[in-house]
Nucleic acid binder design. Structure first.
Lengths: 109, 109
DNA sequence: CATTTGTGCAACCATTTGGTTGTACGTTAC
DNA sequence: GTAACGTACAACCAAATGGTTGCACAAATG
C-alpha cells in the first residue's frame, strides 16, 4: 500500500519527456533550477513544478547552496524502479519454468 | 520524439497500482477481461479502460477467443522499460568514472 | 428463439496534471 | 542601500485521467 504509492510516484514522474531529461542531466552533472529552466521552452515555474514532482518521487535531491537550489539525480531510486521491473520479469520466467516442467512431465498413461 | 512518446505511455501505464497488478497477473497466467474485472472493486468498464491503457503501451496483448478477449502480459515491453532505466544508471556511472579519472590525474604543477 | 454472458463504447463527472502569470522574499553584486 | 538574481508559491486555466452508468451487439447456452 505504502510501497504502491511510492511506485506510482516514481513511474508517474518518469512518464514525462521533460522530467526524464531533467533526471538524465542531473545524473550526469548537478544543476540549479534556473540552469535547468534555461534548457526548456517553458516558464521557470513549470520547470520548478517538474523538479518538485521528481523530488517527491525521490528521483532527484534538492540541496540549497547560497541563493540557489542544486538538483542532483538519485541513482538509488532508478535502481529501485529497475528492480521492480525485474520482479515482473521474474514472474514471467516462473511461468515459463512451470510450462517447461509440465512439458517434461512423463505422460501418466 | 516517437520513442519518447512510447516511453511516456509505458511509464504512465505502470504508474497505477491496479494496472501493475493486471500486468503481474497476466504475466503469470492469461485471463479474460471479465475474469480480471472480478478481481477488483470497480466496474467492468473501469477495468476495461485500464486494459486499454496497458495495451496502448504494449505492456499487454489482447487476443480474441470466442466471445472473450484473452489478456497476456508482454515481457518484451517490461524488458524495454528496464533497459531505459539501465541507460540512466549508465549515465551516472559515466559521471563517477570521469570523477575518478579527474582524481587520479597527476597534478600538473 | 430467447436469454445470458463478455465485450465495446459513448456520455458524463470529479480530480489531477501541466502549463501560465503575478507576487513576494532571501541572497548576491554594484 | 539598491538593483538584479534565484526561488517559492498562489491563482487560474485547459486538457487528461480515472471512475461511473447506460446501451448496443456478438457469442454461448437454455
Amino acid at each position: 500500500m505504502v510501497d504502491d504509492e511510492r511506485a506510482n510516484r516514481i513511474f508517474r514522474a518518469l512518464a514525462d519527456t521533460t522530467r526524464r531529461d531533467i533526471v538524465r542531466r542531473t545524473l550526469t552533472a548537478e544543476a540549479s533550477i534556473s540552469e535547468l529552466a534555461g534548457e526548456y521552452d517553458m516558464s521557470f515555474a513549470a520547470v520548478q513544478k517538474h523538479v518538485a514532482v521528481l523530488e517527491a518521487a525521490e528521483l532527484v535531491a534538492r540541496t540549497p547552496r547560497g541563493r540557489e537550489r542544486i538538483i542532483r539525480g538519485n541513482p538509488e531510486t532508478i535502481r529501485h524502479a529497475r528492480e521492480l521491473l525485474g520482479a515482473f520479469e521474474q514472474l514471467w520466467r516462473a511461468r515459463i519454468d512451470r510450462l517447461d516442467a509440465f512439458l517434461a512431465e512423463p505422460d501418466p498413461n
